[in-house]
Design a protein around this nucleic acid. Sequence first.
DNA 1: GCCACCGTGCGACAATGTCGCACGTGCCCG
DNA 2: CGGGCACGTGCGACATTGTCGCACGGTGGC
Lengths: 260, 260
Amino acid sequence: MSHVPGLIQSIERSSAVLRLLAAGPGRLRVKEVADALALPKSTAHSILRTLEHVGFVEQDPNTARYRLGRGLLDLGADGQDGLIDLNELRGRALNWADALAARSGEEVRIGALRDDRVVVVHHVFRPDDSAQSLDTGRLLPTHATALGQVLLAYNAPAVEAAVRSGLEAYTRGTLTAPAALARSLSATRERGWALSVEEWEAGRAGLAAPVRSFGGLVVGAIGISGPVERLCDTRRQARPAQVEHVLTTARAISRDLAAS
Amino acid sequence: MSHVPGLIQSIERSSAVLRLLAAGPGRLRVKEVADALALPKSTAHSILRTLEHVGFVEQDPNTARYRLGRGLLDLGADGQDGLIDLNELRGRALNWADALAARSGEEVRIGALRDDRVVVVHHVFRPDDSAQSLDTGRLLPTHATALGQVLLAYNAPAVEAAVRSGLEAYTRGTLTAPAALARSLSATRERGWALSVEEWEAGRAGLAAPVRSFGGLVVGAIGISGPVERLCDTRRQARPAQVEHVLTTARAISRDLAAS
DNA sequence: GCCACCGTGCGACAATGTCGCACGTGCCCG
DNA sequence: CGGGCACGTGCGACATTGTCGCACGGTGGC
């Protein structure tokens, strides 16, 4: 049927599907959806498959009928800290994290945003160094760590919250001026990764990249940390090989998540 | 970023936009959405514009920032009788209904589904006949009227409800067998319009077509009614000219709604 | 037990979404 | 109060992407 140019047809259609499912309590079959919207069966199925993938509809395993999914409810109740199930992020990241630790020779952390802090979802020790403490579950500041900066770079409200709650200085290198932080985050966005040198602990640096889910939504970050001299060259620039390791791993996890 | 083939990219992206808006209480700018999802500004804007059009997001007129819209909440609370604001349907249909009455020479009704009944949203008298009662607000049965059959044809759960509550016979022509009703509705779907001859009142017939909103969702029906001999030929088939009048009007209102 | 219908997947085409660019405007800073 | 920048918005061309026809396998119903 006639559709207004300038608007995206498939989104209009998917919204119609959602409205249709919301109309009655009954589950609908693919055929019924297709008939109701005057769409070919294939097209309706394609839309339903995608909506199921993003969690907006669910399919009853037995009857094969579709109903609204839980993903929609999560949208309604705002302030949800979980954009995604952290367990899923952790599960997908497990395998890759070890490999990253091995290749980079540094300890690896995976983090996500929670209440304006970075919660460490997973932590892998440095391969050849056993004298470390397990960080899983710990909360880190957003503005002073590479993980946090990645998460801030792709989430504007979190930046405001961080600024509002005061940019505490942990070392002399910590970015405490809102403008400086904004500039740094902008650079992080353009590069696609963040480098934090002695902003959190003296002598140590961090390197992190975003983990994206479907649609490109950033749901977490993965990064390595270690002594400045192992992550950076003499001019305090990130070592390209390490950047590549982190980026490759982040992309791999992203692909994994998007396919789930 | 890499996206799984077989799934619809724009729907994945729009779901990511919605999740992003749901993440924080703050309103987001176009640029922020674009940055967060690593999309060009144009693309993000196009998605936001469409989501606004379907009511899933709203734009603050002053700040131009986007937040979640009311359309999503309506999806959560199921059992909503209003798939669409009935006042909007009535408003859009007003102009066209008069013209249809004039062209067809019959009275016109516009209806929508409410609680397994057809609620008459608007009613236009026959041009040259003043001795009629105003039907606006009245509730009609679904299975025995052309308006109702159109609405049933595109809404499977409503059919079940109608069958469950018993297909009451108003005349000898009323379809009371579930199987017969199902066949009739299937034919209605294929044709795109419904004809009801002496199923509700003896000597009278109805002719109706669906009114669709964006995405093809059926939100109402419009139709004419009058003596059988004026709507049908001698073999009780619908007169093509009248069918054309109803279909054209229904499509016009649909276009109007989709552009709103 | 058979038939018909439904859900699912693939592939080719063309319509559609995407992206670059540019305009006008509002805000912020000087 | 003026200048500059960045943002929201719109258009147009290209190429990617969504769409649709068709066919397969499984299931439920008569």
